[in-house]
Design a protein around this nucleic acid. Structure first.
Lengths: 154, 154
DNA sequence: GGCATAATGTTGTGAGACATAACAATCAAG
DNA sequence: CTTGATTGTTATGTCTCACAACATTATGCC
């Protein structure tokens, strides 16, 4: 133990405090970056990206959701959603069908292939989350989710 | 209060659970997005972005830091740092100086203008954080910072 | 000293996320 | 029916980020 090392002379690796320390916004950015850096190559192994996984997840939970609804749910504008949906349809993971009640709209449905790939992705992400959160107890993880939701809620 | 509403028939606005629920990575993205959506127009009022504020903060805490060091500290590759530093220098917020001990390197220092703008930005961000975290107690905020650091730590 | 390797700053390039405008087809409200 | 709003689409532009290549300088080894 000994004396507190206030001086930076004794420890060249010591980082001076910045205005960023204590900012929740900055801590969020760092934690999010680290999670994504770990996740992206994992999803890349099955040629997915986080946004595509999110789309498949929402479509599974809402079969027949229209494109506009999917975009609203994920905060993606409909213009930017089009190439993403094209990507999933061209890989036969989802299909577009005419909406029987609104001829402007197109409904979205998972294919059997999409269901299988989504299951595979969910398993990979589950392992990823467990590994990245080993420093947190189950109670801490739940508390973290609760606090993050308080921030995210509009 | 009644029975738990399991059916979705009674409440059309009810959202079915997705694989995204319970994922810390997704909760992080949503919280981070909401914080940034609030912060960016605020910093924009003084023509700053989050990354520029972070750079100024680190340079203040580490006068004479070289570009490579700044990039490492903030997780920005040196190639991408160049136009950002050009932006700050062309606005007379920082200056580049030759490193007396390494003629390859350039050291970075805040100007008086940079100091003043950084103070202004810090005040704005302080109010922003306080307003965005009204739902959290002081203890919850500290716990959140602690948990986020556990995730961000390498 | 001379030489191979690494580090620093820089430029260029491309991919991906995101916002905006405009358009055709369709719906909804008066 | 006619006006305005909604849905999907295309096109465009900006911002962030990664990677490759290069000139200059440091560093380590002979």
């Amino acid at each position: 133990m000994g004396a507190a090392s206030i001086s930076s002379v004794a420890d060249p690796a010591e980082r001076p405090a910045t205005l960023l320390d204590g900012l929740v916004g900055y801590a969020l950015r760092r934690a999010h970056n680290r999670m994504m850096a770990d996740l992206m190559p994992i999803l890349g192994s099955i040629s997915l990206r986080p946004v595509l996984f999110a789309m498949l997840s929402v479509i599974r939970a809402n079969p027949g959701i229209i494109q506009m609804g999917l975009g609203t749910e994920l905060g993606i504008q409909r213009a930017n959603l089009v190439p993403l949906i094209n990507e999933l349809t061209s890989r036969n993971l989802i299909v577009r069908r005419a909406d029987p009640r609104d001829r402007r709209a197109l409904t979205l449905h998972l294919t059997a292939e999409g269901e299988a790939l989504l299951d595979e992705a969910a398993a990979l992400i589950g392992k990823h989350e467990k590994r990245m959160l080993t420093r947190l107890s189950a109670a801490e993880r739940n508390k973290l989710l609760e606090l993050l939701e308080k921030i995210a809620a509009e």
